[in-house]
């Protein structure tokens, strides 16, 4: 029997959730026994070429590229799990949501104290920023949520084990954290 496949993805966040996943220490050897990693920054596989069993995503959606890739994850993952404050609530990047986008850009690129001859970046290769930072579940259907900033390695391990055993991942009190 082939091993369950896992894809992981990163959107607008700090990669801290992936770091926390690596923080499961020697259990990562067990994880590689249990699952096969598909598209993920961990193995640097860039594209989906099949449907995977479990998708784990961190980060919210702050630009059009995030939305496109998140939709790609939804399309290619049987079960999609959002992990971390940014994917769940928008997180720290969503602090800009109470300030209009133009004001944010002007403050960063035109009016900032260290700006000289400022210009708002407009290269066609740069993803277009959205009006606000969206939690993942406002863009696609998310099956399960693991909160934390980042979720602790133990919380991620407990969630992955539950998913592999076909259970709903429900975190114990000390693992359920919003920070």
């Amino acid at each position: 029997m082939s091993k369950p496949t896992i894809a992981t993805g990163h959107f607008t966040g700090c990669f801290g959730c992936h770091m926390s996943l690596l923080d499961i220490d020697e259990r990562i050897l067990q994880l590689t026994e249990l699952v096969e990693f598909d598209k993920s920054p961990i193995n640097d596989k860039k594209r989906f070429d099949r449907v995977v069993d479990i998708g784990i995503i961190e980060g919210g959606c702050s630009n059009d590229e995030n939305v496109e890739f998140l939709r790609m994850f939804r399309k290619n993952c049987k079960t999609l799990v959002a992990i971390g404050a940014c994917a769940l609530t928008g997180g720290v990047p969503a602090m800009r949501n109470t300030v209009p986008l133009r004001e944010c850009l002007e403050e960063a690129f035109l009016r900032g104290p260290s700006v000289i001859d400022g210009v708002i970046p407009n290269d066609p290769d740069i993803p277009i920023m959205l009006d606000r930072v969206y939690p993942a579940h406002e863009v696609v259907k998310i099956d399960y949520f693991i909160p934390g900033c980042p979720p602790s390695a133990d919380a991620l391990w407990a969630a992955i084990v539950a998913l592999l055993e076909g259970r709903e991942p429900v975190l114990d009190y000390e693992l359920l954290k919003y920070d």
Partner: peptide, 13 residues
């Protein structure tokens, strides 16, 4: 939220 098992607010912000 922790005690009652609220995982994420899903209402619009």
């Amino acid at each position: 939220g922790y005690r009652l098992g609220m995982v994420v607010p899903k209402l619009p912000y």
